[in-house]
């Protein structure tokens, strides 16, 4: 009888205890706030770090790119609204190669434009629309210098287009609309790591897919939900030099961190281990000094933190 009573008491209290402990227990990746970058942005979407400490903010609705130094000081800007060379129509994604060349995914003009580090137009190439039901919607471009490739995310057509870095040759097309691995529902921003793995934020599938150089899905990071390691509106992705993966969630307002491929590591927090809450975090990037730059789209700014652990 006594044994039965003891069992019943455990039956009563253990679930409650578990529920309480788990409610607040989340690993925090500590950071220290360094500075914010503001320059009359209008719904910026993405950010990239180039050579010589240049930081490029893609100021989307203003259809321009603004260049800052690594301390957040304004240096210059380039681009205006338009459909000619060096002009943009609500661009969304940006990346910089090892030589400092700046690649812009000009969504509204359906092409990729490339500039030198100072913002001078170099070349452009249209995004392929053969056999695509909709006009190309390049929302981001991710560069792989080692493979001499660039990956163009065609958002509306739910696929990835693989080009040579000079845009002269379309190498492959990966994916279609769907929920299976290798399929996408509105792929958005993307990044590559130093092992030629492409990570694509698959927005409405609420996940990040990691693809190898052949386009095969190596792993799926995150899933639908509002809990640790889950996504509600994943948007931005960044890979640090240790191949840790950072994913921003624009509605939950957090940046979650994963080990390469899958394991959830934690959520960005401050020095007091409180979660960092962002307002519509979108594009993110981590530089070699483990500074993380987070675009807050509706607040029209970029926040910069030093990752401590």
């Amino acid at each position: 009888m006594r044994t039965i009573k003891t069992f019943l008491l455990l039956f009563i209290f253990i679930p409650v205890s578990i529920q309480i402990c788990c409610g607040d227990d989340v690993p925090v990746i500590q950071t220290r706030h360094l500075f914010d970058i503001e320059a009359d942005f209008l719904h910026p979407s993405d950010i990239a770090v180039g050579t010589k400490g240049r930081v490029y903010v893609l100021d989307g609705v203003n259809s321009r790119v603004v260049i800052f130094d690594r301390k957040g000081n304004y240096k210059s800007s380039f681009g205006t609204r338009g459909n000619g060379r060096g002009t943009f129509n609500n661009p969304i994604g940006i990346d910089v190669d090892n030589n400092g060349a700046v690649y812009i995914a000009d969504s509204g003009n359906h092409l990729i434009q490339v500039f030198d580090p100072e913002g001078h137009f170099t070349f452009e190439f249209p995004v392929d629309t053969k056999k695509s039901p909709l006009p190309a919607d390049p929302t981001d471009i991710a560069l792989d210098d080692a493979m001499n490739r660039c990956y163009v995310v065609d958002n509306d057509n739910h696929r990835i287009l693989v080009y040579t870095k000079d845009g002269s040759k379309l190498l492959e097309k990966w994916g279609e609309r769907g929920e299976k691995p290798g399929e996408f529902q509105y792929p958005f921003l993307a990044a590559t790591d130093n092992q030629s793995t492409l990570y694509v934020v698959d927005v409405l599938n609420t996940r990040v897919q990691a693809l190898n150089a052949e386009g095969r899905t190596m792993s799926v990071i995150g899933k639908w939900g509002v809990d640790r390691g889950q996504f509600y509106r994943p948007k931005g992705i960044a890979i640090d030099k240790n191949n840790r993966i950072y994913v921003s969630d624009s509605y939950l307002g957090v940046v979650q961190v994963f080990e390469r491929f899958r394991k959830f590591l934690g959520v960005l927090g401050n020095e007091k281990k409180e979660l960092l809450r962002f307002n519509t975090p979108s594009g993110i990037v981590v530089d070699n000094d483990l500074h993380i730059y987070v675009i807050e789209m509706t607040l029209n700014r970029a926040r910069v933190f030093q990752i401590l652990n």
Binding site: G60, N90, S107, N155, F188, V203, L204, K235, S250
Partner: peptide, 11 residues
Amino acid sequence: SCHDGSVMDSR
């Protein structure tokens, strides 16, 4: 959260 360009760009 969708009309920011990730599904439709209505910014």
